[in-house]
Structure formats: C-alpha cells, structure tokens
Design a protein around this nucleic acid. Sequence first.
DNA 1: GCCGATTTGTCCGTATGTATC
DNA 2: CGATACATACGGACAAATCGG
Lengths: 245, 245
Amino acid sequence: MPRSKFGDIYRDLKYRIESGEYPYQSLVPSENTLVAVYGCSRNTVRRALAGLIEAGYVQAIQGKGVRVLYRPAARTPFTLGRMESFCETARRCRTDYQTKVVHFSMTQTDGALAAASGFPPGADVYHVERVRIIDGRAMVLEVSYFLRSVVTTLTPEAAEQSIYAYLERELDIQIMTSKRTITVEHASPADRLYLDMGSYDCLAVVSNQAFNADGILFEYTVSHYHPEYFRFQDTASRRGKKAEQ
Amino acid sequence: MPRSKFGDIYRDLKYRIESGEYPYQSLVPSENTLVAVYGCSRNTVRRALAGLIEAGYVQAIQGKGVRVLYRPAARTPFTLGRMESFCETARRCRTDYQTKVVHFSMTQTDGALAAASGFPPGADVYHVERVRIIDGRAMVLEVSYFLRSVVTTLTPEAAEQSIYAYLERELDIQIMTSKRTITVEHASPADRLYLDMGSYDCLAVVSNQAFNADGILFEYTVSHYHPEYFRFQDTASRRGKKAEQ
DNA sequence: GCCGATTTGTCCGTATGTATC
DNA sequence: CGATACATACGGACAAATCGG
C-alpha cells in the first residue's frame, strides 16, 4: 500500500541507486527533471531527496546537483541500523536464528530500574530475558521490560517468536520513536552463562527506549551483543547549518 | 549568524524544551499557534519540528499534537553523537584533554587501505596517528588518512590541535556527510602500547568516512576508544512509513 | 570579470486528507 | 457531528551557488 507519493519516489530513486543506474559520484537528475518524470510538485521531489540524504544515499550540492554517495557493501554480515528488530535483521541477512526465553515474569519497577529505564517508579511491567542463537551460537542476551498499561498481555510463547510482530498484529502497538545508547562493557557472569563468549571479555551493550504512537515510553531493553555479531552503521549530514548549538 | 528562519525556530524551540518550559510528555503549541507566534508560514514551522523529531526531542501525533520526549540527562560523561569532533565533545563535556601525534607521514593508498577507506587505489594521502589523553589517561587512538588532492597541506602542528578547525579555517573544508560504522574488537598490540587499557581487552572501533561540500570522500579515520570513554547515542523515528523496503 | 542559465535552498500561501477529541 | 491538529501535495517566488560562454 503506497501511502504517499514522496514515499514512492523515495523508494524508486533508492532502487535505481542500488541497482547502479545512478552510480557512485554521479549526479541524479535535477529536481525539475524529476518533477517532470514523476508528475508532481518540486516540494514532493525534495521530500523524497531529503529522505535519501538522511539515509546517506546522496548529498545535495547547491548550484550543482545531487551526488550519489551510495556504494554497494562488499559484505555486511550482521549490521544493526536504524529501526530494525532483531528478527528483521536476521531475516535480511538470511541467517539462521533461534530465540530462547530464559526468564519471564511480571514485576514492578524499583528505583534503580525506573531511573535506568525512564519508566515511572512502581509501574507494572513484564520482565523478559531472551537469548538469541545464530548459527547455533548464543550471541545476544536481551533483557526487556514492557509497560503493562500499554502492553496489556504478553506470553512466553509470543516472546519466543517476534515480540514486535505480536505487538503490531495483536495489540496494534507500533514503535514510533526509538532512543538508543551504545556502550562497551565487561561481560557479566550472566553473559558468560548464557553466551558463547569465547576469548572475549567485553561486549557491546545497546540500551533502547521505545515510544508508541502516543509518545508513551512502553519498552526498555538492554541487549548484550557478542563482539563478532555487533555492527552499527550511521550517517550524519549537515543540513543548512541547523545543527549547531 | 542565523542563516535561516526555520533554523532560528528550531533553536528557539529546542532551548525552550531544554529549559523545561515544555516538559517531558507535554504538548508543544500547535503548528498554527507557532505560525502566529513566529510570524511565518506553516511550512517553516514544520521544518523546524522535523528537525526536533529527527533529534529525538519530540514526536508528532496526528490529530493530537507534538509531544516532548526530551529529558535532561542525569549523567552523560562522554557522549559521542551525531557529527561532533573529538575536540567539540571534549569541550562540551568540560573535560581536560590533550592530543599527542604519534605518527605523521605522506604515503599512497595500497589495495587493502583503498578497499577499507573507499579512497581510490594509489591516491596520495596524509597518514596521521594521534592519541587522545583525557584527565591524564590515554583513552583514544585515532588513525586517520586525508586525501591530499583535497587536503593540500597538513602539518603535525595542526594535527596536534584540532584538525577540523584547521581544515575549516585555513582550507575552507567542511564535512557535509559522515558515514560511521561501530564495532567491538580485541585490543591490538598498538592499542596496548598507546592506551591505558587496564583490565579491558576490547575496545570500541569507530570507522568514519567524511565527505566535503562537493561530495568527495576526503577523510578516513579509525578511532579506537577505551570502553570507559565510549558512549554513542542515537534516535530513530518512523516518519510516514517511508522507511520500508 | 561579467552575465545568464541551471540547480539547489528558503519561504510563502492554499487546498485537501486523516486522526483525535 | 464539528472543531482541532497533523500529513500530504500543489504552486509560485526569490535567494544563493555553480558553471560555461
């Protein structure tokens, strides 16, 4: 279901760039040309281009054109980026994976958890701990808390599959905003218990806060990644000089 | 120098949010109200709001309003985010720091470096290695390559200070786009030689490609961060459904 | 160096659709 | 249902940067 015209144009241009029709360092057709091609206003074309800029696919150069910065990745074994869930990432990378629920309970946030998660103190939450197994190796330990006032019902069976698919399909809950913090920490005894750490004594820790369509913080997850299965990509672009201060 | 009206509005709203005038979970004034307040068109207000959404400060809810998601950070000792240089980060965090140039040379890209950096093979580059010392502890090892066809002159003295300030002031080179990849790796002998690794045997590795205003890749830097001084923050928001595929 | 054509950047006004209350 | 609020789209105008003659 093509929801918007600028979204269609965005996807079309993105596809043409990925397929090599607009190669690295070349200029895509000018905005006025695209207006004629797609039969829309210049504003709509510019919104599509803004999306490509944000995705790091192109860069606009005033007076010159829009240059392609995209290059096909030689190999991206397991790249975490933007707003994918673990299951989506695994599917995209065509890896074989499995999920094991090692803890499932209902509890209330205490002071420390409230401070770390951003939930109000004393709130009812589901507490779920899962181990992600990739190609037979336990690679990720995820400790999640879901606010029960939003996520009314949750079962270990749903957690065994994709929780996000369950939330979206059954409870009609979508993640609209996601705030992440990445750090590197010593592996804890729990990490050593559940994960195949091998020669590593550290791991990548991703703390994530998810907000639903109403702007309510409803999920807090801390994911512990084995170093060999952690990779995060990001693109930053300076637009107009807005960024400062 | 306020270059744009939507940039002014963006900064003003951001300041009001940070100062607590629009607290967490509240709704900022409606777009039409802001149009009246700032005396501009709705389009301009929306561009300012789009910036705040991307920064994770607010979230728009159709039919309801724009909700504040920002909360003052309790403790952010050394947060790497968006498009700051090391010196800017250090200044923002008011930490005492120092830079030591441990290598400076001119060379050409070989096959491996060309593949990793994205530079063309055989290109003339400056090769700079620097150690960042924070509060007397060597915490970051940065290995950088600068394309000489863009960065025509570079000296160890400029590298000892802020290279970006030098590039911007002296050579009028600005970073317009920056592509980053974050991984976690074992500490190499060079890391152990230069950094105070303590009990850690891993570090955060940030590979960075920087493009200038012409969309030319001119810098490739691999930064090795001590785990205690690495923190990366990021916000992702789903807008319009554009993100899929 | 100037000028004009091209191209992106900013801004305005308006109309219509959709979701919330 | 109507009022409010955000989402999408169109059109036009002018500024700023680039480039070629």
